[in-house]
Design a binder for these strands. Structure first.
Length: 273
DNA sequence: AGGTTTACCTGTGAGC
DNA sequence: TGCTCACA
DNA sequence: GTAAACC
């Protein structure tokens, strides 16, 4: 599940490989549903041909390809998507749903086991993005802002609060659990009940776990792969995620798992209160 | 309105 | 081993 | 992971 650090890794790897290249075609390889939204694959092919990639940016978990002529190709990998940079003659990648051809005899393969990922071509990038808050690794993400947002919630658990993209764009299930462990906060606590000192710890923890994720090129529990098809290594450094029943590294207590907002949530019942 | 559940799709792994 | 179910 | 449906 690509979250902020995984998407950031993809964007950084893609820039030297794809910026300056021109699209020579688009092809959907599987029957509907294809990743393409709001138009047919044929329309996307026609619209993409001849457009140069001016820049590649990340916003939350979205990838933004700024193209010549003012259009933006917006990709979202959802749960199991990957963007592989290959040559047409390279071995096939499993679950490749679409191929974007470039003018240097390479291609971007959009692989996606569960088919939740999306691709859309828009004039204004913001129209393809959901309701997004500030970038948690950017200067606008402050403890004060986090506290203000937490105060607007009533009963929602802080875990669900963190998963809301309008709070900190790019946070996902893994890094939310890890941030709450690092901040020693029980994920079941109501967001509005957090004390100032706790929010300050949480703010720092969010930054720390995301930065560590980027440094380790992301988490690969199952499907995540970078543009070369390689795994990240951050899964070796997680404290609680998918460690149900295993001893906490800090106190030795068994990690517990509960369901919060429909998502599995992992925490140490002794360290997090 | 905020919060929670469900739908979208396909595969893996655990338990019986 | 094969089937079902929870989970991602 | 996200958006729509449902309390």
């Amino acid at each position: 599940m690509p979250e902020l650090p995984e998407v950031e890794t993809i964007v950084r790897d893609l820039r030297p490989r794809a910026v300056g290249r021109t699209f020579t075609g688009f092809q959907a390889l599987t029957a509907a549903p294809t990743p393409v939204r709001d138009m047919t694959p044929e329309q996307l092919d026609a619209a993409l041909r001849g457009r140069r990639i001016e820049s590649i940016e990340r916003r939350g978990k979205y990838l933004l390809f700024a193209l010549s002529g003012g259009l933006t190709l917006v990709a979202h990998l959802r749960m199991t998507g990957a963007l592989l940079h290959r040559r047409p003659t390279d071995d096939a990648d499993a679950y490749t749903r679409a191929v974007l051809s470039l003018d240097d005899d390479t291609e971007l393969r959009f692989a996606d086991l569960r088919r939740f990922g999306t691709l859309r071509l828009v004039e204004d990038a913001t129209q393809a993005l959901g309701r997004l808050g500030v970038e948690p690794l950017g200067p606008e993400f402050t403890a004060e802002r986090l506290a203000r947002l937490a105060g607007t919630r009533t009963s929602a658990p802080v875990k669900s609060f963190l998963m809301d993209q309008a709070v900190a764009a790019g946070m996902g299930n893994i890094y939310a659990d890890e941030a709450l462990f690092a901040a020693r906060i029980d994920p079941r606590r109501a967001a509005a009940s957090l004390k100032k000192a706790e929010l300050k710890r949480l703010h720092g923890a969010i930054r720390a776990v995301l930065e560590q994720g980027v440094a380790n090129r992301g988490v690969s529990f199952r499907n995540y792969r970078d543009v070369a098809g390689n795994s990240g290594s951050n899964q070796y450094f997680v404290a609680v995620f998918r460690r149900t029943g295993q001893p906490c590294d800090v106190c030795g207590m068994a990690i517990e798992r509960v369901k919060l907002g429909g998502r599995s949530t992992h925490f140490c019942p002794r360290c997090q209160r």
